[in-house]
Write a protein that binds this DNA or RNA. Structure first.
Lengths: 293, 293
DNA sequence: CTGTGTTTTTTATTGCAGTTATATACACTG
DNA sequence: CAGTGTATATAACTGCAATAAAAAACACAG
């Protein structure tokens, strides 16, 4: 209920621990965590206390917290139930907008009653959405959803923009591939392809896809390319549920293969080839979409 | 004082009238204005009443308002004194941040006492800044100015990004030049070049420059290219006061000439040449900046 | 119909207690 | 020092009544 920061932080800590493979009995310090997460010790402490009440950590008075059992998927799932809180509303808004349940231009009060949320939560969600360029405060009353990817023209424009930005990102002189991240992504794609088509949840594919494009952009070592790609992903996220049913299993498979080919080219250090593949990949997606509509 | 919408609208109406050259005695209708400005009639009406109290309009009961005297620079200046209101704080924040008076990470209350503003105005300003990606809410308390164009690395990245985006914009298949707008810009540049260097105010050059790049991008008929350029301009605006003194009159003159050459190429329908010139223009600017720092 | 003048309704802001969340400072330990 | 435990000071959020701003509705004129 309480929209506290420590809820979020519980999730952050667990993810951190999983990604770094913390060993059982390893000390989980409050100060270093606070520094890494960019918050003060107070909310970290609350999160740690919470976690120790769940038996994931244990507290040794005088020397802080220790990891009590390994951090696996089960643990994360257990704790992310209530961790949701704030992000929840954000998703709901995107969802309901994408499916037309809320109109392009909408008043704050209308949203309030529609979702039965608290004003504060709503404001936070809108703040985030507006930072992502998805919604804008309009003069006078109300909020205006950016004439986003809800019309065919906008989607074609989006593809054109992404093609320009992402290929340019790959062509930056400082471009440098992170081998470890590349391997992780390759695995994620291969795992996805092994699944039967019916088992691929919409947001799984979206997640992998978004991460692929963002990571590629991040290797440009240029924050603006990365930011632009992230913005596009945020817009696309808004329509993932609507668009997905139109994506055939073949198309998803094809996309995965495209991605893998691009990763191969990058791993081999052949950037011109990666650029060409990426460009073709995006044009093809635009073309497919165009034909379907 | 009152941060009302009608203050803004006064300015909007005057600018509209000037740009369209409204004749004396022409009717100034409340409903059409409301529609064009995207607000309801109420604030428009208040603005019109305000303007008629200043003698700029006159009211004819039963048939609305008429223009009483031509809209020239003096009129606009007269009314923009208090029209400022909301936008004022926005500028002040950018200013004080650019000159280091407020730190990168700052709390809402600190800003409140620093500017002596009302909480509401402050929130509005921050909302706008955050929509432009200049500032972000940070977890816990306070706001974080995006590690924006305040370090050399970021500026170089910005130039690289702009070069990619703007040249790509010019290369879009749907690109179409608007002759009238092109002529207006050409005039603005020539007027600027006729002035002695000492009389060029920082924001005059910035204004012309920003409009040039935005207009070029807008001709791509792709909202995302335009949006990206606008975002970059917003970031750059933040540092116009700091950067400008470093710009020599020769550099400004050179920039103007570059811009004019690009406009010429576009007017002649030679887009590849325009792209090459634009690319050279931005690389050169990056180079100059790099050498100076 | 398009627009004006006026009224009504809706929407959002402001100001202010009370409360909670977060950061910070201080004393202490290994 | 780098860390913990605790206390304290700030900062921000909540809820609520009062108020202001803006939108929408209505009646009527050309």
């Amino acid at each position: 209920m309480s929209s506290g920061l420590h809820r979020e932080i519980i999730g952050d800590i667990l993810r951190l621990g999983r990604d770094e493979g913390w060993a059982v009995d390893a000390p989980v310090g409050e100060k270093p965590l606070a520094a890494r997460l960019g918050v003060s010790r107070t909310p970290v402490r609350r999160a740690l206390i919470d976690l120790s009440e769940r038996g994931i950590l244990r507290r040794e008075l005088g020397s802080g917290f220790k990891l009590n059992r390994p951090i696996d998927a089960a643990v994360i799932a257990e704790c992310s139930n209530d961790a949701a809180g704030g992000a929840e509303l954000y998703r709901k808004i995107l969802n309901d907008r994408a499916s037309g349940l809320i109109p392009l231009s909408v008043t704050e009060n209308a949203l309030l009653v529609h979702f039965g949320a608290s004003r504060g939560d709503l404001r936070r969600a809108l703040l985030r959405l507006s930072a992502e360029g998805i919604v804008q405060r309009q003069r006078g009353h109300g909020w205006q959803f950016s004439e986003s990817l809800d019309n065919p023209q906008a989607i074609l424009e989006s593809y054109a923009f992404r093609e320009a930005v992402e290929t340019a990102a790959l062509s930056q002189p400082d471009y440098r591939v992170d081998g470890a991240a590349l391997e992780r992504m390759r695995n994620a794609h291969e795992a996805l392809m092994r699944k039967p088509a019916s088992e691929i949840a919409p947001d799984m594919w979206f997640q992998v896809n978004a991460e692929f494009h963002e990571t590629l952009a991040s290797w440009s070592r240029n924050r603006f390319f990365l930011q632009a790609v992230k913005r596009q992903n945020a817009l696309r996220r808004m329509h993932q549920f609507v668009d997905f049913p139109q994506l055939t299993p073949e198309q998803i498979k094809q996309s995965c293969e495209d991605h893998l080919a691009i990763l191969d080219a990058l791993a081999a250090g052949d950037r011109p080839r990666a650029v060409a593949l990426l460009s073709a990949h995006l044009s093809q997606a635009a073309q497919d979409w165009h034909n379907q509509n």
